[in-house]
Nucleic acid binder design. Sequence first.
DNA 1: GTTAGCACTCCTCCCTAACGAGTGCTAACC
DNA 2: GGTTAGCACTCGTTAGGGAGGAGTGCTAAC
Lengths: 353, 353
Amino acid sequence: MARRKDRPGPLEPRSEAILQAIIEEYVATAAPVGSMTLVSRYRLGVSPATVRNVMAELEAAGYIGHPHTSAGRVPTDAGYRLYVETIADVVVLAPVEQLMIRHQFGQVEFASEQWFRLAAATLAGATHVAGLATPAKPIACRVRRVDLLPNGSRTASLVLVLAEGPVKQVLLTMDEPRTREGLEAMASAINARLSGHSAAEVEQTLTSMLDESGLAPLQIRVVERVAAMMRDFDAESVEDLFSEGLLNVMAAPEFSQSDKLRRVFGALQDRRYIGGLTRLMEGRSDVHVFIGSENDHEEMHDVSLILAPYGRPGQATGVIGVLGPTRMAYPHAISTVRYVSGLMNELVDHLYA
Amino acid sequence: MARRKDRPGPLEPRSEAILQAIIEEYVATAAPVGSMTLVSRYRLGVSPATVRNVMAELEAAGYIGHPHTSAGRVPTDAGYRLYVETIADVVVLAPVEQLMIRHQFGQVEFASEQWFRLAAATLAGATHVAGLATPAKPIACRVRRVDLLPNGSRTASLVLVLAEGPVKQVLLTMDEPRTREGLEAMASAINARLSGHSAAEVEQTLTSMLDESGLAPLQIRVVERVAAMMRDFDAESVEDLFSEGLLNVMAAPEFSQSDKLRRVFGALQDRRYIGGLTRLMEGRSDVHVFIGSENDHEEMHDVSLILAPYGRPGQATGVIGVLGPTRMAYPHAISTVRYVSGLMNELVDHLYA
DNA sequence: GTTAGCACTCCTCCCTAACGAGTGCTAACC
DNA sequence: GGTTAGCACTCGTTAGGGAGGAGTGCTAAC
């Protein structure tokens, strides 16, 4: 209020430079930064007193704060927000790092289940905070084929392959023994009716089958199971989250007493929270940063999320990103997430080409 | 040394009762326990002075210690060990809890990949420490069948189903487009050669195929990939570990400053450590407890592991268990792990019946 | 508008003393 | 001889009180 002349809008270049310096120093040291340290370490071309004046303005505008009177300044969430917005569009990952990450992705064979894990691990390794990734599951899965393979005398494996790639296997118990041939015949009969169908369509087929006479009870049970598995697939898609390198975040001094972090970890295991995240990213097309209190969930008020969608909108999308303390190296993290999401896009394109 | 008359051997009943009381009190309160609290809360039938004398003996024998002169007693790892050995054979899980756990297992359909997750989650929920589980992978996997399914124009899914149940899918890129029928024909040709084969046998087939003429390069590449996947399966089996409820352990006061715990989590992510664990349990048939410094790895010196093997020796085995602070409710944890391992045995038997 | 000077604030660190929990010893008791 | 009451002693914990210092905000000079 005091010395501010106009509304929060754009800051004078010098004020912005000082805010930037404060943030960079604080990110590096985790300690409140004073006017003296600032002028001695950053070529600001002004005296500590001037810096103090600017600091007072920045504080009045809500971009920085003091823990107490005789302490240095600490960026607020709003300060980080401004900082991120000024740098977000320009940061690009250094070519060396691009190369290293691309190299890591080159290692993986096209085993599709491993992509997100790899993405999460790569992000964690590159940014030294935690990497996150959800699988890119299709909006609505479709059946490719169903196999019935004999196991023991009265058990069989039901293998469901989706058009989009994923495979799932469940165990089936049968009232009476069946031959391999009998099972194969049944599988191809089922495939004829289900192949290419979505979860809803399988459901329809199931209800119509219930009216038909002459169908083996086992056949109906198999279709029931397939319908259930398809439901699961559709539901899972938004609820699975891989995280890697949470230990990196544990190492941050702000989380040395594990209390706050425990709540963060708890939220990360909450499927509803994860579902919310993916839904939040649905409309977006580029990296988005959620800083501290900008996160909807109170548990996340001490951390920042940098997320990016990937995949093909309307077909199969997922989310990758990083999670770290609000005191985080945003430029590097943002550019890394952006780069990895680009790589993930390439991979998905390759899969659907 | 001082007052001990004979070697560590069996303790007098009264001493044992007092050790037991110390441990139970310490497990409950996490604070060193004094002679007064002990007589007031446990019906020991003796005065604090007598308890102090016994405590001195127990300390000389190495079963308990003091943090400092004027503090109460704390059990040592050796004390826990003695305690665990006196109770291990007799503890049985309360019927109510048995029912609850069995009920949880009833929920899961026979989707075999989910068993260990469920076991880990159940253990975590029942014991309030962390639950661990490795999948029960067969000693040596065998191929059941291979499918080649067209994806895009130049990509196909290679689906590998193992005789033991697990399924894996990878993406294959092809130099030239192939029809669905062509792929199916190739798949059945490959199946004829690989079905029922172990990783080593697939490897042999591959080398013999390299000498044959007239084989499509793609066919050889597929067999190569299958060989690689089989190797992976065999290797993965001992290296995968699901954990659930690590947050429970974070909540323990001994880990309030997250330093020690971070090292524990680090070790849990180390595949070599996990491999060591499973190998450690290979010869055993019942629950085994590793208390603090009994663990080979220094990172684990502040936690205890209660592990049990499950599965069919020689066919498919895995390990389940819990991880908690050395100050843990051993009787309950041991009986829970034992009970869940029994359930897992039932499940595996059912699968292989 | 910028800067030097300076009083002021308030956190941090360190020292000390009072407190108290719990022990270990000794001597009496059963 | 084992058990117990009594008591001196140890030592960590806590609270209080400067001394020190980092950093600010204000004022006045540049």
